[in-house]
Design a protein around this nucleic acid. Structure first.
Lengths: 277, 277
DNA sequence: GGCGGAATATGTCGGAGTAAATATGGAGAT
DNA sequence: ATCTCCATATTTACTCCGACATATTCCGCC
């Protein structure tokens, strides 16, 4: 049962990518060379099929497998990964549920074309940003924010209740306390945007909060690298809050529009810097 | 092996979900009775775990299981369904991937709160509309359309290429030929909106096309019931096309805005009628 | 060229054993 | 006597294995 070695390696690679996003770990794709340091991190709470799904998902999102490619057969692939066929199959079911692959008897499991992928699924989003992110896709996500968030702010201005406003105030004060230079501050930023989406009282928009939040989180990594944080975002956020509190939908949409626009510019320049280096 | 009976029953139940937006198969099954229940009796390409996922998914979306509820254990539930634990587990993995449930050893499998559900996943959307649809959710989806589609039209006006315009023209002429009274016409309608989303050349927006398209498809069931189709939608659609062809983003967004607004009103009145009855 | 059988990969099954999280109980301290 | 803390027990999901069933595809046959 030497197969356990690779299993722990897989599990470690996939440590907590969804809820607590951290570095996508640069595990170097060590091929067969496995390191037998198992007891160090103990058993990561990760499930095996989740780890396999993560591995295959990132491989697909990074273009390692391209649409139309056919994966090796179940038995072969499972044996190669040193896992049982059951675990491999459950991982494939996850990928299938997210529209990444489809399998049919005799035909094998093939990667679906990109437009079938659920790119807004938080987990898929995490996989997309696990490696080198596609700059074009980052731009697309910001365009989505620029479309959705101002509209959500407008609705929020019309429908917010006291609890919504309190959530925004709390997030705002947390942002003031921690600033955006640390994790707590960035979490507060997410909470603020999430509170606005919630205040829109629209389930369909709220679902996008998870996707947008994930996108924001991953793109802030770029901003960190380029450690120029010239702008103080608090006044802009406060402006959005006050417009929503006043019930002024147009002003809220306008203020949120500039907010996203500024974030886009910051990120764009940060990406430029990253590309240049 | 007498358990097979329930299996085929499950498979049959799941045939109408049509998670393959690929080609709705232009033969259209011809059935005179306007779909109503297109359970074509035949459940061929359907997998067992897919059927179980459908059954549980609809049960959750319909509120039969509420957030926080704990499902019976694997062995018990699998035995109750007369399926193997493997099939049941693979179904659970699908639901987990879509954020509907989460399972942990000893704690069991519990239904997650609504805001963790991937409501925009096409399959989840289908489950949501499998039973009596939530009127509030329908309204939310139309608000999402009202937000996304005009913005997509504006981008499309700036970025469309010849192929995009051709796709729109083809869909438009197909709409003229078939009118919206039959499936072919409605499919052309979907194609038109899909072509616009594609012309925005934004992957994030395009993903919403599948969700929006599914939402449109399910809501049209209401419009069918209320068989009043007073408005001729062609001029409105043509207006959108011309604005995009002209590269006039503002006009395209404006025209698309009224289009969605009209669709919302039609659906609202149809729902009113349905509720009254 | 259409048709039917063989090959092959996915799909399904049942059981056994492992790992993890909760519940339980007891020992010691306050 | 009550509380805290820790070891243990138990329950449940997780993983593995080997076999059989089923559905497609492919190829030879008519």
């Amino acid at each position: 049962m030497a197969g356990r070695a690779l299993l722990t390696q897989l599990a470690k690679e996939a440590t907590e990518t969804v809820t607590e996003p951290q570095f996508p770990d640069k595990s170097e794709e060590g091929k067969g060379t496995q390191d037998e340091r198992e007891s160090v991190t103990r058993g990561p709470g990760r499930r095996l099929h989740g780890a396999i799904a993560h591995k295959l998902g990132t491989a697909i999102l990074s273009g390692q497998y391209q649409p139309g490619d056919i994966l090796s057969g179940e038995v072969a692939f499972a044996e190669e990964l040193k896992v049982s066929r059951s675990a491999y199959r459950e991982a494939i079911q996850v990928l299938t549920a997210k529209g990444l692959v489809a399998s049919r008897p005799k035909a094998g499991t093939r990667v679906l074309p990109r437009d079938r992928w659920n790119l807004l699924d938080p987990e898929v989003l995490a996989w997309a940003f696990a490696g080198e992110p596609d700059l074009q896709f980052v731009r697309d996500l910001f365009e989505l924010r620029a479309v959705v968030e101002p509209a959500a702010a407008r609705l929020a201005a019309q429908r917010r209740d006291k609890a919504d406003l309190k959530a925004m105030r709390d997030a705002l004060s947390a942002m003031r306390r921690h600033t955006l230079t640390n994790d707590a501050g960035r979490a507060a930023d997410r909470d603020f945007h999430d509170a606005i989406l919630r205040a829109s009282h629209n389930a369909a928009l709220l679902v996008l909060s998870a996707s947008i939040g994930a996108a924001v989180h991953w793109t802030t990594r770029f901003k960190q690298r380029a450690r120029e944080l010239p702008r103080n975002p608090i006044p802009d956020h406060a402006l959005v809050y006050e417009a929503i509190a006043d019930g002024n939908g147009d002003a809220a949409a306008e203020a949120m529009g500039v907010l996203v626009q500024l974030a886009l510019e910051d990120t764009a320049s940060a990406i430029q810097a990253a590309v240049r280096s």
